[in-house]
């Protein structure tokens, strides 16, 4: 497939190259043997379990995007198809680390009960409500999905960075580093799309601002277990430097087209434990 040149925006992200060079299974390249002599801490394993759930939840997320006008955009769906494939294998790599510790793979482990808070109710709305809510919205919804996708990548990057900085296991550092390289292209795509779409349309900015007010992080968080979310927030955004990490994400949100300090601090606040 060829990509039509866009006269207005030069998009540096090469979707064709991305789809052609997707990263599949890399389990065999992981250093799993070293965990025998140097096992990870219970806290690290808990984090990996949750990260595996987040990376694997692509079909849930795809469902929420595809019931809206986002499915009409063939460039975005080409990306999403490949993105889901890469995330599947990232989750598999995380499972490999868990299995090396004698733990079962994530899909066989029942998930705990989700949080029940009124302000996140909208995030829990099923496909019917999402489809109804999207009727008449047209393309601005794509901008919303791209913006939320970008911020989600920033959050996961902060989390993986923090894990790499705090772990004593070089094997884990390598595996997480490997995953982060794959995620670089996802972030680049969302960044490109967010930038031009928010610049392109005032309606898109309005919708994105409204979405950030009700967002729950990371994406799909409302479906995840309350205990896992607490653990994630405390680990990444609690303790020394935690607030600064949340703040740094807030600053980047504020700098997006059409966003401001208010949107930045709303987002940063939601990340805190």
């Amino acid at each position: 497939m060829t990509t039509s040149p866009d006269p207005q925006v030069a998009r540096p992200f090469d979707i064709r190259e991305f789809t052609r060079t997707a990263q599949g299974n890399f389990r065999s390249e992981l250093d799993l043997a070293s965990y025998e002599s140097e096992p990870l801490s219970a806290q690290e394993l808990e984090f990996l379990r949750y990260a595996a759930r987040l990376e694997a939840a692509t079909m849930e997320h795809l469902r929420n995007l595809l019931v809206t006008a986002t499915h009409k955009d063939a460039r975005v769906t080409a990306f999403l198809v490949t993105w889901a494939f890469e995330k599947f294998w990232m989750a598999d790599a995380l499972d490999a680390v868990l299995e090396a510790h004698g733990l079962p793979r994530t899909r066989t482990v029942p998930e705990g009960a989700p949080r029940r808070s009124a302000d996140e109710a909208i995030q829990r709305s099923g496909p019917i409500r999402r489809a109804l809510a999207a009727v008449g919205l047209g393309t601005p919804i794509v901008a919303v999905h791209m913006t939320v996708g970008l911020i989600d990548e920033w959050i996961l990057r902060a989390a993986y960075d923090h894990l790499r900085e705090t772990t004593t296991s070089s094997a884990l550092r390598d595996t997480i580093g490997r995953i982060q390289i794959i995620k670089t292209r996802h972030e680049a795509f969302f960044a490109d799309e967010t930038d031009w779409r928010l610049r392109d349309s005032k309606a898109a900015v309005r919708r994105a601002r409204a979405a950030l007010l009700t967002a729950a992080w990371p994406i799909g968080g409302v479906e995840r277990a309350a205990v896992d979310r607490d653990m994630f927030e405390t680990f990444v955004f609690g303790g020394t430097g935690g607030a600064a990490r949340a703040e740094s994400i807030g600053t980047r949100v504020a700098a997006l087209p059409g966003m401001d300090a208010r949107m930045g601090s709303v987002t940063a606040k939601k990340l805190l434990p």
């Binding site: 795809l62 469902r63 889901a84 494939f85 599947f88 489809a131």
Partner: peptide, 20 residues
């Protein structure tokens, strides 16, 4: 995906590969 199918692990694995 708007049906309950996506909650099934086998089905969501299949859909990921199949789509691609």
């Amino acid at each position: 995906l708007t049906t309950p199918s996506h909650k099934d692990g086998d089905i969501s694995t299949f859909m990921t590969m199949w789509n691609r």
